[in-house]
Design a protein around this nucleic acid. Structure first.
Lengths: 164, 164
DNA sequence: CTTGCTGCAAACGCTTTGCAAAGTT
DNA sequence: AACTTTGCAAAGCGTTTGCAGCAAG
């Protein structure tokens, strides 16, 4: 944790940026919620608990900075809100997201399943791939179990509502 | 073309909606630009050429309606603008998008490359897949050729700028 | 004459920006 | 002193909504 912060500090310094208290607080919140895909507003509210004087604009600026420096990753699940997650340090390639259309949960697949597909695309279309995004929409295992046990008459709508 | 319009008309009637002149004009624009991934604003401007009195709100409402009826497909490439494309009538499964980060072009792959990957995900994660989205970011074959011939000093930035 | 559809303008939610004050070197 | 960074408020953007008028069965 602390060593992670230290490395990020170095990273910022290397690009002539400072790890101000506000930035550090933001980084800590992100580190503590690595699996949560927080929106800027989420981050703002969490940072406010530690540093109540921080402004929303600063959070946005910090997130943009961290994204530009490739420290975090800006995600877009199509619901009109940007979400942010830490980028794995080991420079591992991608992971993918499973979005449940019933409860809105976002799970992750940590393997890169697309090696073969990528090769095929690069060859067939002569397209040099730099990055890819793969999102599955469906029903998560938790909701499937619920359905089996107690088939609710009115399905409760997801809070993360894609392409509504 | 005309028969396609007629079928859409039936489709609307079946759900108690009318194919008004404004809606028809919008559908025609979409039909004429099936490969273009138009934004709502794009559609609006094109429709205006034929029906200058139309309002932007009507275009939005029409696009939402057509999307709800599964006649068109709302897409999100992560640049903060919704884009729309016609859904293949033959109920073919998915296709994927290749977005060039240099010129902003959006090409399509018409095959579904993910059959195997889907099976694996459904089995390994017990996640019932309803839909998926796969987007590759990279350099399209056109820009690659340009680069080879005349390596420009300052790369011209794409107009479709993802996660800027 | 009831119902749906439209255009306009205002409102909306998320994000960015201008600016003066505060902090850092 | 020169330069970042900050918080606030205002503006920006794409999109949605309220409403009065219009169109159509």
């Amino acid at each position: 944790m602390e060593d992670r912060i230290e490395r990020i500090k170095q990273h910022l310094h290397a690009h002539n940026y400072k790890l101000t208290p506000q930035r550090e607080a933001t980084v800590r919140v992100l580190l503590e919620h690595q699996d949560d895909h927080l929106s800027a507003e989420d981050v703002y509210l969490l940072v406010k608990e530690k540093a109540p004087e921080i402004g929303l604009a600063t959070v946005y600026r910090t997130l943009e900075l961290l994204n530009d420096l490739n420290i975090i990753h800006k995600l877009n699940f199509g619901d009109g809100v940007a979400r942010y997650e830490f980028r794995a340090e080991g420079a591992e390639r991608h992971h993918h997201h499973l979005i449940c259309v019933q409860c809105g949960a976002v799970d992750e697949i940590m393997e890169d399943l697309l090696k073969n597909v990528e090769h095929k695309v690069e060859k067939d279309f002569n397209f040099k791939i730099l990055d890819h995004r793969l999102i599955f929409h469906g029903i998560c295992h938790r909701c499937q179990e619920q359905e089996d046990n107690q088939p609710l008459p009115e399905a409760k709508q997801a809070e993360t509502n894609i392409n509504r």
